[in-house]
Design a protein around this nucleic acid. Structure first.
Lengths: 203, 203
DNA sequence: GTCTATAGATTGATAGAC
DNA sequence: GTCTATCAATCTATAGAC
């Protein structure tokens, strides 16, 4: 039946994306050969070319997938506990821990795709959209006062604050990757708290 | 005379490093061929191998050079005006503007070298040292109260604050690269100010 | 001290079998 | 729909001329 064919094709596509993500995180976009990506998916290069056209094709697909995954993950971060301070800690933990975990190499993938998007004009939009979406979801929570009880925020303030919060987390995670002791969790949380409390003066 | 020989050698070394920096910023570490790096220096691959041994050798040399250059640049940032708020603006401007300038592609080089350092254990130390040095110089200024008149800080507080300030600037610059409008200068300065004012609660 | 020439390995992509 | 075989291009690194 054609139903089974479609399922098989979808399965191969998923495997190819998983394999590519792993290899790119490990060796970088330029270092990831088509054959290595297909091999990590238990397929051969032919299957990859059939699904994605060329090497750039699968990288762009990876970028789209990454965009949706992180947007969804950020949403989930903020529905945990009631204590605003505890939410901050959980926000940082959810951001930092999975990205630091050795196996998945999320943070390296993030920077690889960012660099790729900076250099390939046709991919810049997808990456910008991803950051915009993460900002937007975080801003939604901030505007609702989720992170600081009793302090409502205007949409503009919330959007700006979300930009700062994401920026701080990304920049801290970079430093932490090279020197874990330089960025203790308490410092990160204190920084996030300072941003949120000091947000009165934001544009 | 041997004096002239040494000068010529030093000149070639400098040219090779300049060429390599430019090509790596442009195409990435993996995309930068030895021949292209040497070509950008008006030399050939033979000269490069004589000076740096192999491709990794010149990348590591690039990393060291980059470390010294940024440390020095950060130092200079904070000796401009007397107004603390104006210093913040100049700190951000000096960080953001040269890195955003199209020609030199500083920010891309920064992330390329960071990724390289994350993947090559023997290079991690050099990159970590660089961030530590930048942090240390910034912390020095913060501890002296340069950024907020009348508020002295302990060395530990200053070190933590410097980590946050650098993290925020790096993370904001990444978002700005993809979508300039998302990170107006005023927002960045407001974020820096919030970090510095809210630093009372830092570890 | 730098260049030319080249070996040896790897890559992106295509064509055709099944 | 996926695989095997293969070509042309490119890369790192070396050897030897000058």
């Amino acid at each position: 039946m054609s139903r089974t064919q479609e399922q098989r094709r979808a399965e191969t596509r998923r495997r190819l994306l998983d394999g590519a993500r792993s290899v790119v995180a490990d060796r970088g976009v330029a270092g990831a050969s088509v054959e290595a990506m297909a091999g990590a998916a238990d397929r051969t290069s032919g299957a990859l070319y059939d699904h994605f056209g060329d090497k750039d094709g699968i990288i762009v697909a990876l970028l789209d997938e990454w965009k949706e995954a992180t947007a969804a993950a950020t949403q989930a971060d903020l529905t945990g506990t009631d204590d605003p301070d505890e939410r901050l800690r959980s926000l940082w933990a959810n951001f930092a821990v999975p990205r630091a975990a050795g196996g998945q190499q999320w943070m390296l993938l993030e920077h690889e795709l960012w660099l790729y998007a900076c250099r390939q004009p046709e991919a810049t939009g997808a990456a910008a959209d991803r950051y915009a979406e993460v900002r937007s979801r975080l801003a939604e929570s901030l505007a609702g006062g989720l992170l600081q009880a009793g302090a409502e925020r205007s949409p503009d303030q919330a959007a700006g604050l979300a930009t700062l919060v994401i920026g701080l987390m990304v920049g801290l995670e970079m430093q932490r990757r090279l020197e874990p002791d330089a960025v203790p969790d308490d410092l990160a949380v204190a920084g996030l708290r300072a941003l949120i409390r000091g947000a009165g003066g934001l544009s």
